[in-house]
Computed example of a mutant assay.
Amino acid sequence: MKNWICIFLLFFASMTYAQDTLPLYEVIPNSKPADNLEKSETAADGITRVSEVSVPQLIVFRPANPNGTAVIICPGGGYRILAITHEGYDVARELNKWGVTAFVLKYRLPSDRTMLDRSIGPLQDAERAIQLVREHAREWGINPKKIGIMGFSAGGHLAASLSTRYRESLIENPKKTSFRPDFSVLVYPVISFTDSLTHMGSRNNLIGSNPSESRIKKYSNEFNIDKKTPPAFLIHAKDDKTVSIGNAYAYYNTLQQLKIPAALKVYETGGHGFGMYNKKEAHNWMGELKAWMQQQKFLPNTL
């Protein structure tokens, strides 16, 4: 425990306008003894993809002038890899320009080799991330009531899972810290695990290839929305052939029915995986997100 406290003290002392890395746990829950086989590769498209993540981390990007808002970012990759640059680091740097403290979550990727129950590992890490940020908000200059979560593709499924299943305590929580995000940003998200909507690779990787109907429903976030689900901003392209736009509609429509503040940016073209910038459309979603966050009082109007 003393070593863990020392890590935090050194981390807080070293934070600058850049990135710092913080381990999520002293002892990783729901884990098996296994070699760390994590691998990072940058492809010809310039995107760095990380695979075999078994030691979760928060990569923290601190702005020069923090305004109290924080966003935890979950890169996508089908619960198989993490597209950690264009759906993580690049987004964090842009949010820093708005005064937002950004946390890229390098969450564990489901694996029977490294986990006792692979289906809960990523959500455990999301819970731990918001627990850390909320419990140490004062040290980071963060308002504990302005902590959002953003997810891309399968990372969107993780962000939506935390937004709808935040009452499930899958980690130790002695301070009874709320796992509920104050808002969510879901970018071409996998929302549903139903046969008609799901991205089958994400479903298979998280809960296996032959899940029961009850398990499918539990992991389909459109069925878990209630009146306390946080406000959401969603982005999707109609021609997305990897993750059907029906996922975004399912989540957005239920939020609307429950009168939860929500916005949906729909592109005619753009496909899947475009990150912050849809090169096939003139107007990109980050500006609209900023305006929505201002409208919802998560950002000051002076930006």
Rank of each mutant, 00 (worst) to 15 (best):
W285R: 08
K238I: 10
K279I: 13
D240Q: 11
M276D: 06
Y249V: 02
I245S: 03
D240W: 10
G246W: 00
A248N: 06
F274M: 11
H283W: 07
F233S: 01
G246C: 04
A282Q: 09
K280D: 07
L234K: 01
Y251N: 01
Y277E: 10
E281A: 09
E281C: 11
A262V: 09
G246P: 00
Y249D: 00
E281N: 08
H283P: 02
V243P: 03
Q256N: 14
G246I: 01
N247D: 04
G271L: 13
K279S: 12
K279W: 06
K241L: 03
E268P: 04
G246N: 01
W285D: 06
H272I: 15
T242H: 04
I235D: 02
Y251G: 00
Y251R: 00
K241S: 12
A237S: 15
P261S: 05
G271V: 11
V266G: 02
F274V: 14
A250R: 01
T242E: 05
Q257F: 15
K259M: 11
T254F: 08
K241I: 08
H283R: 12
V266P: 04
T254R: 14
I260Y: 03
A237F: 07
V243S: 05
G246S: 02
I245L: 03
Q256M: 13
N253K: 04
K265C: 01
G275N: 15
N247L: 02
K238R: 15
P261L: 06
L264S: 07
G271F: 09
D240F: 13
D240C: 12
Q257V: 14
T269E: 06
N278T: 10
G273Y: 13
P261E: 09
A237K: 10
E281P: 08
A248D: 08
F233R: 05
Q257L: 15
